[in-house]
Write a protein that binds this DNA or RNA. Structure first.
Lengths: 339, 339
DNA sequence: TTGTAAGCGTTATCAA
DNA sequence: TTGATAACGCTTACAA
């Protein structure tokens, strides 16, 4: 910046003023000269220094479990785009669903003084999240939520409603033994979906057999296999299955295929999250489609709303609704497997 | 930091020294006191200020086309993990295969003074990349490459070899009319794969019909549809298809399915990149499996090697090899479609 | 072993 | 309309 000033024959202060328009007066002719010098010297302002001085950043943190999961990948993609549209950079972190790793990610983000963070939290770190808030960093949870974090906005889907709809859909096709493979109980989404499922069961009078619901850790592929085996071995077996655990959906689909389970003849399936592969399978999988782009857009919007001068005082919670997309994996229960 | 110093009854310099071990002497007892104060005041160093002073960062940029593409998503996931293991933060940017957007991403990364960047470049921005190098920012291209950027390392796969193997595989099953749907010519991967394909054709004496190769933009779904239609309408039609354009592979698979093309009866298929869905289709798709995790690991490793004091002088290029994973989508050509 | 002070590249205040 | 100058929060000689 000093070089530019010298080259243009002005003081650094003036350069700063042409860089940040409206921050002070500068003669048109001077501005032109400065701009020219900037160009010829290929000067680029040092945002770190600027941030030190202004005590603020234009970077946000994005904390996700695992970007190779299509749901999070798509979310990340849209968050990055929406952020860029607002001039915000995105520092990406992954937690692998591990609370300790999540904590270290947060430390890094705090050290870098990000302006805010968008996160799909593991759920096991309420204190750390409160600490984030206490440091004055804005926070919006996306998809998942964690209780007791004052001032954190939430944008998620209507999990209860979606699970209700999926269950009701199966009921409408005549299923009575509907299984649910969900995430672990410390994920808010799992709890909410379980609730919607239970509600639908109660209203319809379908079987409420605790053995029909499996709460599986997001990364526990072996657990998913075992759960599926268990469900099929039940007497009477499950004829419908709702897969809420998006991280394990592919594993489960592969397992169903490998076991030679007829879909939907023997088992009707509804999967949460409309990943591209669900339509490619034979039969195409009926899914609950989440509005991923809207989720990302709202999250960035809420966050960036808190970054400005008049930040909303209250905590906001937005719930977007998901849609059931019918394909070919749901049909009335068949006579069951013969063997 | 001043608060901590006061609280511990020392000067700021001492606090700094306990923070950065080995940077200067500090009595054990003093260190203990300082550490205690840090803890009780919940002090976290301001990495921006540190970076301003030390004129260096522990952040790298990651520039990808599109994180919702599984290949890039997986790459991003592993890059983030590998970087974190080395204490590096990752600023994620997407280009949507748009050179202008890529340029603006680079500007942002330069302004933030990232230490280095890992990128799968669009290929249309050689000057911008040279500029990055000129600013002293370390650069490693991953997957794709761009020519004439001095000092940029490259870690990619052996595209030529992989395409050769895929083509030879089809030839070995008796195919003579093997089509290739590739990315646009300005992507290095497309050019290399095309070369391997051509080589295999030449060696085997299979048809070298220019109408059999389609270069499609990564985001041009309509173009992919049209290309597929064209290939099938040829006389004689293509009986084998290699999909190199990973971004369009899902679209193509959906289209093949929708058209009711029998696989492998009517058309044998090999797809580049072993995305999870390829195994879930019926029939399972034969794929070229790229070593994505190794790609990411090597990229971070090369980059971080350049960050230290003894940076290698020469440009390094590492080529990892891909493996052909046989599933059920390749068989000898059938009698062709009857209609 | 510790403290002091200069300076990293900006912005902001205040005089000229 | 412009120029000095003092921070911002840290590191690092160098002096004590």
């Amino acid at each position: 910046m000093k070089d530019v000033a010298r080259h243009a024959g002005v003081s650094p202060g003036v350069v700063s003023r042409v860089l940040n328009e409206g921050t002070g007066p500068v003669a048109p002719e001077t501005r032109r000269r400065v701009l020219a010098s900037i160009r010829t010297l290929r000067y680029r302002p040092h945002s770190g220094a600027r941030e030190l001085k202004t005590r603020t950043t234009n970077t946000i943190g994005l904390v996700l479990a695992d970007v190779s999961n299509h749901f999070f990948a798509e979310l990340a993609d849209h968050v990055v785009r929406a952020a860029r549209a607002r001039g915000l950079g995105v520092l990406l972190t992954t937690t692998q669903e591990d609370a300790a790793l999540e904590g270290r990610s947060l430390d890094m983000l705090m050290d870098k003084r990000v302006r805010g963070v968008i996160a799909a939290p593991t759920g096991a770190n309420a204190a750390a999240w409160r600490q984030v808030r206490a440091m004055g960093v804005q926070l919006v949870f996306v998809d998942r939520t964690v209780d007791r974090v004052p001032g954190a906005d939430v944008v998620g889907v209507d999990n209860d409603g979606a699970a209700f709809a999926a269950t009701a859909h199966l009921v409408a096709h005549g299923h009575r033994r509907i299984a649910l493979i969900s995430g672990p109980p410390w994920a808010s989404t799992g709890r909410e979906r379980l609730a919607g499922y239970g509600r639908a069961l109660a209203e319809s009078g379908a079987d409420r057999d605790p053995r029909l619901v499996c709460e599986i850790d997001f990364r526990d592929a072996a657990g998913a296999d075992a759960a599926l085996d268990g469900l099929l071995a039940l007497d009477p077996p499950a004829t419908g299955l709702i897969v809420c655990n998006t991280a394990l959906a592919e594993t489960l689909a592969a397992r169903v295929r490998a076991r030679g389970v007829a879909v939907p003849g023997e088992l009707s399936i509804v999967v949460f999250h409309d990943a591209p592969w669900t339509a490619l399978m034979t039969p195409g999988l009926t899914v609950v489609r989440h509005p991923v782009e809207a989720l990302a857009a709202r999250a960035v919007e809420l966050l960036s709303g808190r970054l400005g001068p008049e930040a909303p005082a209250r905590r906001r919670e937005v719930r977007l609704s998901s849609a059931l997309v019918e394909r070919e994996s749901v049909a009335p229960p068949g006579p069951g497997r013969t063997r």
